[in-house]
Design a protein around this nucleic acid. Sequence first.
DNA 1: ACCTGAACACCGTTCAAGT
DNA 2: ACCTGAACACCGTTCAAGT
Lengths: 237, 237
Amino acid sequence: VQVSNQRSRRERPSKPALTRDGIVAAAVAVMKAEGLERVTMRRLAAELDTGPASLYVYVRNTAELHAAVLDQLLGLVGLSPSGEGAQWANAVVDVLWSYTGILFEHPALARSALVTRPSGPNYLALVERLLRLLRNGGTSDTGAAWGVDLLLLFATSIALEHGTRRQVVNADEDREALTLAIELAAPSTYPNIAELGDALVSGTPHERFAWHVHVMLSGISTIPEPGSGAGSHRGVQ
Amino acid sequence: VQVSNQRSRRERPSKPALTRDGIVAAAVAVMKAEGLERVTMRRLAAELDTGPASLYVYVRNTAELHAAVLDQLLGLVGLSPSGEGAQWANAVVDVLWSYTGILFEHPALARSALVTRPSGPNYLALVERLLRLLRNGGTSDTGAAWGVDLLLLFATSIALEHGTRRQVVNADEDREALTLAIELAAPSTYPNIAELGDALVSGTPHERFAWHVHVMLSGISTIPEPGSGAGSHRGVQ
DNA sequence: ACCTGAACACCGTTCAAGT
DNA sequence: ACCTGAACACCGTTCAAGT
């Protein structure tokens, strides 16, 4: 069996030693080539010429692997003009739209971002940038902190929503389902849906996106933090 | 083999004929007993004493099955006082909090709601109710329509985010990861994160939830619809 | 310490064949 | 028409055993 060992050394002289970075790099490569749904322990093990069990030495589980891939991608988020000043609100729209665009290509990563709060350097850079924009825009400290949370939750969800829908569904079929449901909505049972039916599906994705962000930004600089009044509700059952 | 057939008839006289409703009912039962992650075609087939292939006569795929389960659950959304009038904003908070609470128990359903827009009667009833509240609150028609979209996206995402985190993670470990990342954030690299660190993790879940909803409601009745100015951005690459 | 074969316990979906 | 056994093509994770 010695000969066979030597042969395989010769044939794959580039077989890299197993390292965490090597695994993450392979994961990114597989993702770009075949999509994140193929970034599985087994697929990666095959790629790295080993068995799935070996990866568990370096990566706790699949979720951790996906988180590592995500932060890599976030390096691409809007390196465009920082747009301070009067345009700060539009700058926020741009940064978030860029972030959403990246996740949009890989909805499973959006899901991962929603479920496991990212904490990699590129994610922190994104948070930092948004905080700066908001504070420049004149929000309070808590407003900026909680507001960034809301904005990123929104952007991530939009990516998950539309990204998944694009790849999973016949794209028709599903939009049809809701549109149809709206049209069929008995005006007696759902008078408001019946009346606003058109508005419910109007606008381009970016129009809606921008409007939603402006809505949040307006509120963020307007609504006082809790303690200043609003709060105190019953808990969930 | 006739005898054996009769015997099995005797032993399970209650074996129900396969119907779509029967399958959905079994799905709800399994979900309540074992969680949605066990509501699989194979598990359900076993429950209904048949093979997985048989279910495909009535249900297109697993996603459709989960959507059906979801609408069943949505029947439970806040049948509490409708709270019109001056309290309309708080009424919205309550309805959404109730909706979130239900999905919170079954984060996989929240994911399903995000990915496949629900269109069942109970979901429509929820939309209808929110539209009514918003219009009573004085929003424009488009504002109400697009606003409900934003509010439900938010509520669904919050459920997915926190619900999944609760069951997947050691609950510590993950929150720690972010908190730690914030604490370790070099003030020189992330000055705003360093300065606002406390605010980033302050507040109870409900405080944050309520503040976020008030933020959105404020913006929804403030920001004019597109066409009235704001719009027109570059597209995503 | 690191690595791995093999196993455990599952998945969704399709299809040819039966009734 | 409805139903199904069997197969195809996968999963994540663990563990005993090796080097």
